[in-house]
């Protein structure tokens, strides 16, 4: 068991936790956090696994950097949408009927 493999395994576990949260939690913010956990898990796998196989490798670092930027963009968009959704419907989850608040101030 090398340290990179440990990273990769930890990443896999994080992925599992994140997936569970994304599917089972209903509050939108929780879902979003779960997505971020899952994303971190994927990045750990991405960094850990190649180093376990072939030693030092700069490429995954670069990839993960890009991946983090993408994840931040996605999170930002999600936060905006969740906030607006809450503003219009008063709901924090996708289950349940949206209370009609279309006359609410925009």
């Amino acid at each position: 068991m090398t340290a990179p493999l440990l990273y990769a395994l930890a990443g896999a576990i994080l992925c599992g936790i994140g997936l569970f949260g994304l599917l089972w939690l209903s509050h939108l913010l929780r879902k979003l956090v779960a997505f971020n956990i899952m994303g971190s898990g994927v990045f750990l796998v991405l960094v850990g696994l190649p180093q376990h196989q072939g030693g030092q490798d700069p490429v995954p670092q670069a990839l993960v950097l890009t991946g983090i930027v993408v994840a931040i963009a996605a999170t930002a968009l999600a936060v905006v949408l969740i906030r607006r959704y809450y503003h219009l419907s008063g709901l924090t989850s996708l289950t349940g009927e949206p209370a009609s608040r279309e006359g609410a101030p925009e």
Binding site: C15, V42, V45, L46, G48, L49, P50, Q53, P60, G67
Partner: peptide
């Protein structure tokens, strides 16, 4: 992306 990570690792 997880699949991609596995491919790159392999």
């Amino acid at each position: 992306l997880l699949g991609v990570a596995l491919i790159y690792g392999q």
